[in-house]
Design a protein around this nucleic acid. Structure first.
Lengths: 133, 133
DNA sequence: GCTTGAACCTCAAGTGGCTTGAGGGCGTAG
DNA sequence: CTACGCCCTCAAGCCACTTGAGGTTCAAGC
């Protein structure tokens, strides 16, 4: 299987596969006339990589997951990565919700303060540089 | 005011200020003996930049907001940026919540399937390469 | 006047996870 | 033998900075 076939089979671009190889996720395959030739195991590994990446694991985390799979460690270890990852997802959600509240308050505050009159302070630009109206 | 004083006054690092200048957010100040000398307006501008960045506006958005402030446009235009930004924040929250649900389901599915027995398929590694137990 | 040390300068490279582009080699069909 | 598609490597670009190297300027103490 040449790299283009592998790419289509896994739904990734060709440069992405070469990038994964350079990043140490895919082991360098054999070559024929300088061209990479892949087997079924490579496709399995690539699909697992895509699975991890779609779950938003980082490249480093994905490499660790791959390593533990290849060392045939019990999945309890992989579950630990997933749990840690879940924690960081939840943290990011909390941050974004706080940000959402802040920006929403600015928008509605601007509407209340500035609409219809030449209000001196627009809450959006608390630096005090804004010219409201 | 030299760059270090400005940095402390605005709560940013010195290289960040030089980066903002190179990115076209801060106008290049005058120099004395090759060193940048800032005034009060620069501090105001830098504080507005930090305000925008803390609200997670991109550099490009921040540059547009600064420009509209400096052209003394009504804040209704700035409010438009904020509303657009609010939309993208909410979209990202929705994506992360979907991701959270997926990863949480994987973790609890692994607990249900794999704990105590040598389960053949761990849901976390759907590629089928996992060795559960 | 001299020395020290902090603060300043420019330029380059690193971060993450790829994508895009330049410039050339290989394989196969007509 | 030519044309075309696929492949190769290497370098740069994205974002918003941070870090580091190597050199200059400023302010204070002696």
């Amino acid at each position: 299987m040449r790299i283009g076939v592998l790419a289509r089979a896994a739904g990734v671009s060709v440069p992405t596969i070469r990038y994964y190889e350079s990043a140490g996720l895919l082991t360098p395959p054999g070559r024929q006339g300088g061209q990479r030739i892949y087997g079924g195991e490579d496709l399995k590994a690539l699909r697992l990589i895509r699975h991890c990446r779609e779950l938003d694991f980082s490249i480093d985390e994905t490499r660790e997951i791959l390593a533990s799979v290849q060392r045939r460690l019990p999945c309890s270890e992989t579950k630990t990565y997933a749990e840690k990852h879940l924690g960081s997802i939840r943290k990011k959600i909390a941050e974004l919700r706080a940000l959402e509240a802040t920006v929403a308050a600015l928008v509605s505050g601007c509407e209340a303060t500035c609409s219809g009159s030449a209000a001196p302070d627009c809450v959006i630009l608390q630096a005090g540089v804004a010219n409201c109206g």
